[in-house]
Design a protein around this nucleic acid. Structure first.
Lengths: 266, 266
DNA sequence: CGCTAGGTTGATAGAATTCAATTGTAGTGG
DNA sequence: CCACTACAATTGAATTCTATCAACCTAGCG
């Protein structure tokens, strides 16, 4: 894997589609984690000492829509950080429909459930082209002193993932399709808002079909419920683009109570 | 019966309710983790060095039905290990119905999602009286060499919890009530079977109401689906006692595959 | 221009929720 | 031992919701 020097002069070139295609595989930029735009964002690297950050040079690479980052059963190579674009994680079922476990946005980590396993336990598919990094966490044991501090961060990260996963589970255990979809949209909005984007306007990275599988309802119900939300002036949906018009109203539906909680622990 | 400890002389006394009451709080047995009946079972302590195991003497105590192990928002004291009985974990919603996150059986760990937080993120309520241990994992940092090895075990445990949680999420995203309930019962059976109990006969620790909240269906549907399973000769339900009569049949419902001749990956 | 995949809408049968009534069970005290 | 109470669980009937099958619409694209 040939590495390029840091940051030559990509910014003054107009990015055409061909660039995406030809550089999709193998094109990697040598940037340490601390130099990465997400270094202060991904808590996993918050206080990562420099010598440790250098160990895994961020092997950033572009990915195409439909590309498989890793497949269930493949030997574990590492977890992935999304830098741009979007990914879905799912289980492959023999002949029936796939089971979607979650969606991942820029700044989020993916594949942690396979961390200490020999093989990946899920499959990750790119929904929206962008950039990802593979972090070979299994090589960390080579380290000495910094290792322990990093482990603590890793435990922190895993714990947070666990809490988030539980939150997600609670959302999915809601009864009606309206509750589920409202909770889902609010969750997406919150996650987009984390990246400095406006929390009321965002673009869904997944198909209606994916939402349906994820929430355990049919694709037609997703569509119909979205339409109903629009007639209620709760939001505006133009294809994948979503504009939330009445967040409190959606919260009332999602939590079937007047908006109670303000801000959960970050 | 897994709990055959070298007792003093409790067996020759008839256990009355009063005993449970007076020893419910504060009565602790000083046993190191390695002497605990679950030491070889809880992977977290699998290879725990002795000097480390001695750090937290298992502060086992009896708990009563309805007792709150920890409440959402309380300062974090440690995670809990169930040694006997059963516990449910839930989120408290302002005035509406509680959201149930999961159920915990003997040999399982509880509260890991709050591990590196300052306060508990969930509430744990005892469903079936028994014995629990509080493990003050925040005090571990006092340790030296053994610490790192333990951290690795902790990461392993957290990773497994994450994978299980995802599995649970997938189960809950199933569409029909039959699928969900069948999957739930099979999951319970599997977990009971882990403790050397027969996997086809067990006693539910929770109310129908709890199951309903957990699965996101109504309590009446739980009841009706159970009776439907009984008329199909899939199981026998006498109150909380469950006898699985046709496990493959239930699997066929839970995983919506006609004949699961070969066992799926497990 | 017509193709195709994704998305929406309609009609209908089946499933689940809801309200309501009934039965069952455990605990209490006379 | 029994009635009494409170709570849990079941069952019934009507309404509401959802899945399903189908047709139609839309946008992107060669």
């Amino acid at each position: 894997m040939p590495f390029v020097k840091k940051r030559t002069n990509t910014s003054d070139r107009t990015v055409k589609k061909d660039d995406v295609t030809d550089s999709a595989v193998g094109h990697r930029t040598e940037v340490t984690c601390s130099q990465c735009e997400f270094s202060g964002f991904l808590q996993l690297f918050n206080e990562m000492p420099l010598e440790l950050a250098r160990i895994f040079l961020l092997r950033e690479r572009k990915v195409l829509k439909g590309e498989v980052l890793f497949r269930e059963g493949e030997p574990f190579r590492g977890i992935y950080a999304i830098k741009e674009g979007g990914v879905k994680s799912c289980l492959l079922t023999p002949q029936s429909t796939e089971r979607i476990l979650g969606f991942y946005l820029p700044g989020e980590l993916l594949g942690m459930e396979s961390l200490r396993a020999t093989h990946y336990q899920t499959t990750a598919i790119v929904l929206e082209p962008g950039r990802v990094c593979c972090l070979p966490l299994d090589q960390l044991e080579l380290l000495g002193d910094s290792y322990q501090r990093f482990q603590e961060q890793l435990i922190q990260t895993l714990t947070n993932h666990l809490a988030q996963q539980q939150q997600q589970f609670v959302l999915s255990a809601r009864q009606s399709a309206e509750e589920r979809l409202a909770a889902f949209l609010l969750n997406m909005a919150e996650r987009y808002a984390r990246h400095g984007l406006v929390g009321t306007s965002f673009r869904l990275i997944m198909l209606r079909q994916d939402i349906a599988y994820f929430l355990g309802i049919s694709i037609e119900t997703v569509s119909r419920t979205l339409t109903r939300f629009q007639t209620k002036k709760l939001l505006l949906a133009v294809g994948k683009q979503i504009y939330l018009l009445d967040t409190p109203g959606l919260q009332a539906i999602a939590y079937s109570t007047p908006p109670p909680d303000s801000a959960p622990a970050g």
